[in-house]
Design a protein around this nucleic acid. Structure first.
Lengths: 218, 218
DNA sequence: GCGCGGAGTTATAACTTCTAACGAACACAA
DNA sequence: TTGTGTTCGTTAGAAGTTATAACTCCGCGC
């Protein structure tokens, strides 16, 4: 959320106000969810009239898209921060959970229920690719430590459709593993954040940790 | 969606109109998602004025709650239908995917992003218990076929917090397995339905099948 | 110093949910 | 068959929402 480097004072002011709007938007989303995000309420909180915000965001969707972009960016940053040097899969997994619990609605904004017609801008898919790249690195390092098992039918299929991995040189078994890591961690995390474990009594952290252990072959 | 068994003509008519409202609501949700559900639009389609619907549902939330209840009921029915006699875990898993793909927004209404303040009525948690019971049966049968492994720390923890399993007599390792089945299948399914696999090229069905294979120890 | 562009204003349209008050229709009983 | 009372659907309206149009006014850059 730092786009404050602009030459002209006008642009600087503009970036500043855009940031302030996003700030209020995040607060609102955190308490009432993205569907309840109201430009009018943000304007009221900022002490300006409703239509004033339309100078900064063409419409509600554009603001939400920007928030999604920032959320992706934030996750990519924490991933690269954590996985950049020592690409440790378990550490990455727990960094993901920390990031998610830090602001559940931010996680759900990215990985939760989308509006059927919505198409993510090219931009975000690129950042998603960055995230996947870090995950692939960690999985490749993990695979190097553990002996590989026999290739499955899914491995072969993924070998034929490996465009989503960019130009990552990992073998298809690593692609499969990365995908499995993603889906399994998301499975526990999304159910936890959605409150489906709420009345069940057990500690979701332990369930998550067990999945991480299973994924790292411990 | 059959509550049409009522004594008086008034009650019969009332139940019929409630059903018709829900019918239109599902159509709307399927195309635009639950957040875009509009009572006014439903009324217009039914050829009545907006406020007329408030005779049948006190407000928008009550209608959505009813839809969630029906969705739960529908899933519980397909589960019991499939798992009632031959409780086969793989069959159950594919029945789940079929049910989800049959109406993605219905799945997401139940397992997708909730509104932060929303509390599911007691009713739905009871139906969720039914669903879990079928899953536990299938996992117990699966465990009887395969030899059990050593108890994990998570097993012990779940043994201490087994209230959510009702009075199901399964050992804690089966509880853990059922929970794992739930989270892993949901992980693949929810990412698929949310469109996160969209531009990636591979076939989500194969990824799902691979998870099912891993869960059934094949 | 002056002019133009951008910022914020009010007014307004077209929506939404939801309440209130009214009239009409219908089931039921006498 | 004729009340009678509940219920249904209507219109009117309040309080929101997103978004546009037109207007004023300040300040940056020339």
């Amino acid at each position: 959320m730092a786009e404050s480097d602009a030459r002209t004072p006008r642009e600087r002011y503009r970036a500043q106000v855009r940031d302030e709007i996003k700030q209020h938007a995040w607060e609102q989303i955190a308490t009432a969810g993205a569907s309840a995000l109201s430009l009018n309420a943000i304007a009221k909180r900022m002490g300006v009239s409703g239509p004033a915000l339309y100078r900064y965001y063409a419409n509600r969707d554009e603001l939400i898209t920007e928030l999604v972009r920032d959320a992706y960016r934030s996750l990519a940053d924490t991933f690269r921060e954590r996985g950049g040097a020592g690409a440790d899969l378990a550490g990455l997994a727990h960094a993901l959970r920390g990031w998610a619990l830090d602001d559940p609605q931010r996680y759900l904004l990215v990985y939760g229920t989308p509006v059927p017609g919505y198409h993510a801008p090219e931009d975000t898919t690129r950042i998603a690719g960055e995230i996947m790249a870090v995950l692939l690195d960690a999985c490749a390092a993990c695979a190097a430590a553990a002996p590989s098992v026999a290739a499955t039918a899914l491995d072969d299929h993924l070998g034929d459709h490996r465009d989503w991995a960019g130009d990552h040189p990992a073998p298809s078994s690593v692609l499969r593993h990365a995908l499995t890591v993603w889906t399994r961690l998301h499975g526990v995390l999304s159910l936890e954040l959605a409150g489906h474990f709420a009345g069940m009594g057990f500690d979701p952290a332990r369930l998550y940790a067990a999945e991480v252990d299973a994924l790292t072959g411990r």
